[in-house]
């Protein structure tokens, strides 16, 4: 199928690539279907989440685990249920970025990750109730930021999680 995107002109995508947000995103409750477009081939580091309902709605999100080895989102039972009760290893997490004039001013939202059931591609934006994760972390010093505000959490952190990417197709 073909879609007009906000940032990349016209693109081909397949039904299997799309993700469905039953409740939309916060502030975008009516927009439920998106296609994740990786900014670089075969990498889920930076993804453009393009709305299928409105060409002008697109978000830049990042794989937070590539930026921080200590980020540990804890999904609630209710949120997990809304995703169809996937196992933890089948959930991928991405965080939406606000890209400003410079990278120094650009931020990432660690408090509201997007959780995707990698098996069904059901997706949901969460609000974490964990201390130290805020709406706006400077992307450049995310690690330092978490470590200084969240020392207790860090000391409990285990090894880095292996993620199943939801976007990795070639463009």
């Amino acid at each position: 199928m073909e879609i007009l995107t906000k940032h990349f002109g016209s693109m081909e995508y397949t039904e299997e690539e799309t993700v469905h947000f039953q409740d939309g995103l916060f502030g975008f409750e009516d927009y439920k279907d998106y296609v994740p477009i990786p900014l670089e081939e075969d990498s889920d580091a930076i993804i453009c989440l393009q709305s299928l309902d409105d060409q002008d709605i697109a978000f830049i999100m990042m794989n937070p685990f590539l930026l921080s080895s200590v980020y540990r989102p804890k999904i609630t039972a209710a949120d997990r249920k809304a995703l169809g009760n996937p196992n933890e290893e089948d959930i991928s997490y991405y965080c939406i970025c606000v890209i400003n004039e410079t990278l120094e001013d650009s931020t990432i939202n660690l408090k509201c990750p997007i959780a995707v059931n990698a098996l069904t591609r059901a997706a949901r934006q969460l609000i974490l109730d964990q201390p130290g994760y805020n709406f706006r972390h400077r992307i450049k010093d995310i690690e330092k930021d978490i470590c200084t505000t969240n020392k207790k959490e860090v000391s409990h952190a285990g090894t880095a999680k292996k993620e199943k990417p939801v976007a990795g197709h070639k463009r």
């Binding site: 502030g27 939202n109 934006q125 709406f135 706006r136």
Partner: peptide
């Protein structure tokens, strides 16, 4: 929730 919506608006 309100702040989450505001940040998303900025991101878009």
């Amino acid at each position: 929730l309100m702040e989450a919506a505001e940040v998303n608006q900025e991101a878009a």
